[in-house]
Design a protein around this nucleic acid. Structure first.
Lengths: 212, 212
DNA sequence: CGCCGCATCAACCGATCGGCCGATGGGGCC
DNA sequence: GGCCCCATCGGCCGATCGGTTGATGCGGCG
């Protein structure tokens, strides 16, 4: 433990993988102006520690195994105000990016980024400035130009049942609607996902990480 | 750069995420008897560096983005002999574990493991001794007791086409077989995966990471 | 108030799927 | 030479799916 500069950026790590946390801790230890003040292995823990420690920046992974996910944790931390959340994850799908930004993330960095970029993004995030990894920025821009069809809540419900392998009748019963309605929703889902079969829809949904 | 002990375990890192590599590098730097002699961001790079540097242990992630995956890289490195591969990944599905072991991995560790376990596993791997994370060991034991049905190559072919959303006729044409054969394979796939629809099969396949 | 997105439902029809039977041939193993 | 796994194929049938058109009601928005 070395004494850190008084004005150092105070960081809370949140990642469900202990090895990754330890790695980040060691890595950030090389930067004198960055100080890790806490570690969380789950979303709930991160929310609690963020409130208790009031760090400048929370480094948040999106996939957290059990419990609330990184998006939900980000939302809760961001909603309390005062603490910036910098997402650091491996995924760069539209769904993940959109949800994280909507939840109030200050920045979105990929683990594939160079460490120097991470350091810079942390310092920026401490000041409330947004940093996006290039691939992420590209996707955001593409979104602005040609808004991809977004599935409605109900359509996601149907998609969830669909991925369980249920037939239209079972989906209808599970959601308390008629079979006709299920078929109508399915047709729109096919349109939006650019497929024309249920198997294709499930495939795209899993790849786009539209389902938990 | 500090001078390492002469008899230190020589490590080659392989992970497609630069931040993770940097984190591991910093983390392992805290252990005097472990020396990182190289880094690879792809499977091809890892194979080449393993041959060139002949490290004691390759720390190998399974998901490597583009190019060959960690399993294939493990196979090539293990086949040349003399270099032990210790898999360090986030996934603990049967398919991943089975393939990695079959490819010749010396050990299989999860990133959720404590750093001390990682250090210990590295030292063991250098001596050719196997280390498995507890959840991984459990799955291996379960496998021994009740061998899960394994999909044949051909069935995986069908499954791949299925996940593209193709109909039986298209699958038949794509694989140069008759529609009847496709249906026969599908039936067995359903049996083995414990489903009874194509959508369900795709869902299980994606979750079990049976498809690339 | 009118417009629009969303969710809901109906009826129809051809194409496809899933399950069932049985069959052949090749390859590895003892 | 048997035995078993795997891949291949055929036919049959009822159930289901996918596409279409059209309709209703509800809520937000200007």
């Amino acid at each position: 433990m070395t004494a850190n500069a008084p004005g150092a950026v105070r960081i809370l790590l949140c990642d469900d993988h202990a090895v990754v946390r330890a790695g980040l801790l060691a890595l950030l230890g090389s930067e004198p102006d960055i100080e890790v003040v806490g570690e969380a292995g789950s979303g709930e823990e991160a929310v609690a520690l963020a409130a208790k420690l009031t760090p400048d920046v929370v480094l948040m992974d999106l996939q957290l195994g059990a419990g609330i996910d990184g998006v939900e944790a980000t939302r809760r931390i961001a909603d309390t105000g005062g603490v910036h959340v910098l997402v650091l994850t491996t995924y760069d799908t539209d769904a993940d990016i959109t949800r994280a930004i909507e939840a109030g993330a200050t920045g979105y960095l990929l683990k594939a980024e160079r460490p120097e970029e991470l350091f810079a993004a942390i310092r920026s995030a401490a000041l409330g400035r947004t940093t996006l990894s290039p691939p992420v920025a590209s996707r955001v821009m593409a979104r602005m130009r040609k808004p991809l069809p977004t599935l409605t809540e109900r359509e996601l419900d149907i998609l969830g049942q669909l991925s369980q392998g249920l037939g239209n009748r079972d989906i209808a019963r599970a959601l308390f609607i008629s079979e006709a309605t299920v078929k109508t929703h399915l047709g729109r889902i096919y349109d939006k996902l650019g497929v024309d079969t249920r198997a294709g829809a499930v495939s795209v949904a899993k790849e786009q990480r539209l389902l938990p």
